[in-house]
Computed example of a mutant assay.
Amino acid sequence: MAPIPTPPAEPQDTPDAYVGLAADPAERQARGRGWSTVRQLPPGAIITMEYRAGRLNFEVSDGTVTRCWKG
């Protein structure tokens, strides 16, 4: 049987630090800190909820990050 692959390590970063930042610079900052995927989502967006290591989600309203979470 093949071994279970080890998910990539996530950056040691605090999602709350992105709240209040402009969305595009926040995304560049997140990618620079090692996040492999960054999603910008409108408030109330319907999204899949599977956890993806290395993904950071931004809820963006009027060009500003209003909420941020891993996965």
Rank of each mutant, 00 (worst) to 15 (best):
E50L: 04
P8G: 11
G54F: 02
L21W: 07
D16V: 07
I47D: 12
A2R: 15
R33M: 09
G71N: 11
E59K: 13
M49Y: 13
S61M: 03
P25H: 13
E50D: 10
R31E: 14
V65E: 00
A22T: 12
E10R: 09
T6G: 10
R67T: 08
D62H: 15
R31M: 15
T64F: 04
R55W: 05
F58H: 06
G71D: 10
R39P: 00
A2P: 10
A45E: 14
S36P: 02
P15T: 03
I47T: 15
I4C: 05
R52K: 03
T14F: 02
P43N: 08
L41C: 06
L41M: 13
G20S: 11
T66F: 02
A17M: 05
Y51P: 10
G34W: 01
W35I: 07
P11D: 08
D13S: 15
V60N: 01
R52M: 04
S61I: 01
M1V: 12
E50S: 09
S36T: 07
D24L: 11
G71T: 09
E59V: 15
F58T: 01
I47M: 06
P11T: 07
N57C: 04
R67N: 12
P43T: 03
T64S: 07
T14I: 12
G44S: 13
R33W: 06
D62W: 02
A2D: 13
D13M: 04
K70G: 01
E59D: 08
P3W: 11
S61C: 07
I46D: 10
E59G: 05
N57W: 04
P7D: 15
S36E: 14
P8D: 12
E27W: 07
P7T: 09
E59M: 15
P11S: 12
S61D: 10
L21Q: 15
E50G: 06
S61R: 14
P42W: 03
I4S: 12
N57H: 11
R33L: 12
Y18W: 14
V60I: 10
Y18H: 09
R55H: 05
R31W: 06
Y51A: 01
P25Q: 12
R33F: 02
G32A: 04
A30V: 05
V60M: 06
G20R: 06
T64I: 15
T66Q: 10
T66E: 11
E59Y: 03
P15V: 01
R52L: 08
A53F: 15
A23K: 02
P3H: 11
C68N: 01
R28H: 08
Q29P: 00
M1L: 12
P5T: 14
L56P: 09
R28N: 14
Y51K: 07
A22E: 15
Q40N: 07
R67H: 13
T64V: 13
V19R: 03
P15A: 03
N57L: 04
M49S: 14
R31K: 14
V19P: 02
T48L: 10
Y51C: 04
Q29F: 10
V65H: 00
L41S: 01
E27P: 00
R31G: 10
D24H: 06
I47L: 05
